[in-house]
């Protein structure tokens, strides 16, 4: 499937079909991640149950501690 991830066209395996799986795929599992799907924030508790589809626009913002 193809979607827009952080502004860039990104090809994903079809098996990556929920927000949680996408976060794992992006190696952000251990991070605090804010997810925006097509303009709406998806709460942490809904990551598992929210599926993603071809053409979705997703922004993933993860927090880091450095500085």
């Amino acid at each position: 499937m193809e979607l827009i991830l952080n502004g860039k066209k990104t090809e994903l395996p079809d098996s990556v079909n929920t927000i949680t799986l996408l976060i794992n795929y992006c190696k952000l599992k251990k991070k605090v991640v804010i997810v925006e799907l097509n303009g709406s924030i998806i709460e942490k508790n809904d990551h598992e149950g929210t599926s993603i589809e071809d053409g979705d626009q997703i922004e993933l913002v993860h927090f880091v501690g450095g500085g």
Binding site: K31, V32, I34, K44, F63, V64, G65, G66, G67
Partner: peptide, 12 residues
């Protein structure tokens, strides 16, 4: 925004 205190992770 964080809800929890993130543990460890990458640092500089």
């Amino acid at each position: 925004l964080l809800e929890t205190v993130p543990m460890g992770g990458a640092t500089c």
